[in-house]
Design a protein around this nucleic acid. Sequence first.
RNA 1: GCGGGUGUAAUUUAGUGGUAGAAUUCCAGCCUUCCAAGCUGACAGUGUGGGUUCGAUUCCCAUCACCCGCUCCA
Length: 452
Amino acid sequence: MNKVSFEQIVSLCKIRGFIFQGSEIYGGLANTWDYGPLGSRLKNNLKDAWRKKFIQERSNSYELDSAILMHPRVWEASGHVESFSDPLIDCKKCKIRSRADNLIENAGLSGNSLGNDEMFELIKSNGIKCPSCGECDFTEIREFNLMFETYRGTTNDKKSIVYLRPENAQGEYINFANVQRSMRCKLPFGIGQIGKAFRNEITPGNFTFRTIEFEQMEYQTFCKKGFDTELYDYFKKYGMNFFEEIGIPKTLLRFHDHEKLAHYAKAACDIEFLFPFGWGEINGTHNRTDYDLSRHQQYSKKSMEYLDSETNEKFIPYIIESTYGVDRIFLALICSAYAEEEVNGDTRKILKLNHKIAPYKAAILPLSKNLSSKAYEIYKDLSRMCMCDYDEAGSIGKRYRRQDEIGTPLCVTYDFDSETDGKMTIRQRDSMIQERIDISELKNYMSNYLKR
RNA sequence: GCGGGUGUAAUUUAGUGGUAGAAUUCCAGCCUUCCAAGCUGACAGUGUGGGUUCGAUUCCCAUCACCCGCUCCA
């Protein structure tokens, strides 16, 4: 994918119904994207693959679907209200952005509990200088809250503010005791969740890499202190393994350990993918210690302790979080699958998607329109088993090309011989193996292929 | 949020201060017996809003969006 530009990917996504710009007919809304018919399919397949690996195939593993809107105190406890909202100020001369409270503190003054206007006045009256260029010529202070706010009820007074969750994790944490009790869990156990989160970031987009509304697949493992380091290493590898299983080549992946850590974390490591614009995070594993549950215990006054019935010890569990950005992995899948091949001077686009996540598993093609009715009947039947496409428009070659371009692994062609011998030609895109299979055997053949 | 670039049909693009041209795609028809064949036809466009002008897709301003580089980033 060396020479592949982002524009080619964006263009293919639009033409083939994977991703459209958000609110396009109104000129677009920055950093929002809509997933089209094939994009939705691919995205759901990705989520299904994750669900299978993290929920279904793991024991002591439970899925959760928590509310996007949560009690505002959740975000006070989590630290988001405090650390997600900064009073920022820009130097008009050198365009460097600083935190207003830091400027005041560094000047030896106290900016505690001052409002933004007061801080601005303080900076002006004391002639506090820009740390970069030494001038004192600032824009007004702007509050930069990364959490989307909305209001419940009909009045916009402060008491009714609720936030759109900036991460899903808190949903898992505040339901820790509910899940533990109802599922009779013993440590260690995991809670996974797939859902949307929102961040009011002003950033360059890089297509769907950074958006203001995005979907996460998160997995939180609750464990006893002392077991956390081992689990942390385990989930780093588990994540890498997941990416390989859905078809992302290992050569395009790397670990990236964090040195600067978030307010809750003891250790953090990303898995990065080599996008056309450079390395970008698609997974993060964090050792969040007992920070989150302790804070919720403190703020809610509800016990978050776990009783170990073997040792009779009571303690607040540690949490290892492994979080996956759905939209970013989607993008990584498309980027790593996209290829162009030269055939007889023509450039052909191919999406080499793993069959597990391909939007369509098979396309049913009548060799001629005269064979439509029987082919369509077979298509309807196969559709009961998996997602299939049916195409009778244009030449047979063109229809194969169309399927290659959207990553369909199997093409099944009904021809004139099929009428008499009851067989169809089935072609595998990845190996280009072509076989004639009895129509009654098609489902078996396909299901065996798709199980690989 | 800063700096630079770009906006013409679904896509890729040509061109012009005076009726916007093509290729591909898509659709319909003819043809076509396994990997983007051919023919005919149809659909479809100057991101949005102002200004200058007799007249703006073209010049100017603003805005929106995307791309590149910063900045930021749990």
